[in-house]
């Protein structure tokens, strides 16, 4: 049998929370985030850096977590798709992916959201060409990318306008829309 890996202590700031636990020395960041870090939103699509589903931000830069040795990320600040929203207040990019059709089956969506949020952090008004360059490492099989580009463009508009996204827990439609003051 192949000799097993050592255990090492791993710590990082994942979605604004300090986490620390032992990992195997050869562990890949994607596995650590999914199996131990509580980020099942980070998806595994290909295991070889071709699909972009596993993208996370490491110190603000989008990385393919399936190609990052977990030990390389010790002490870093990691943002996954779960860290984009603030409580139930969605990041504009999350809202526009839903409203502009950027997400169909949704499996590639976390990766797209992370790279486009990173893009908008750097460049709040990207051109279509800049948007396409930012998402060129991500594969989507449902949308044909057009509505994804629309979503990112729309999110940039929201960010620029300073409009905030509604609280998803706010009261929904009244089934008895009568006269009430």
């Amino acid at each position: 049998m192949i000799p097993g890996p050592d255990k090492v202590k791993w710590h990082a700031r994942v979605n604004d929370q300090e986490v620390s636990f032992p990992i195997e020395s050869n562990a890949i960041l994607l596995d650590v985030l999914r199996d131990q870090g509580g980020s099942l939103g980070t998806k595994r699509g290909c295991d070889m850096g071709t699909c972009g589903c596993c993208s996370v931000m490491v110190n603000g830069t989008p990385k393919l977590s399936c190609l990052v040795l977990a030990q390389e990320a010790i002490g870093s600040e990691i943002t996954t798709v779960e860290g984009l929203s603030s409580g139930h207040y969605l990041h504009p990019i999350q809202r526009t992916f839903a409203e502009c059709g950027g997400s169909q089956c949704g499996f590639c969506t976390p990766g797209f959201l992370v790279v486009s949020a990173a893009l908008l952090n750097e460049n709040p008004s990207p051109s279509d060409q800049e948007i396409k360059t930012a998402i060129e490492g991500n594969l989507c099989r449902c949308t044909g990318y057009q509505q994804i580009v629309d979503s990112i463009r729309e999110a940039s508009e929201i960010l620029k306008s300073g409009r905030h996204i509604d609280d998803s827990t706010s009261s929904k439609s009244d089934p008895h829309p009568g006269f009430k003051e």
Partner: peptide, 20 residues
Amino acid sequence: ALIDSSWKVTGQAKYGDDIR
């Protein structure tokens, strides 16, 4: 917008390998 899109865009949607 798809009615399940809120799950998808927040990473809360559970696909096959997310069932633990």
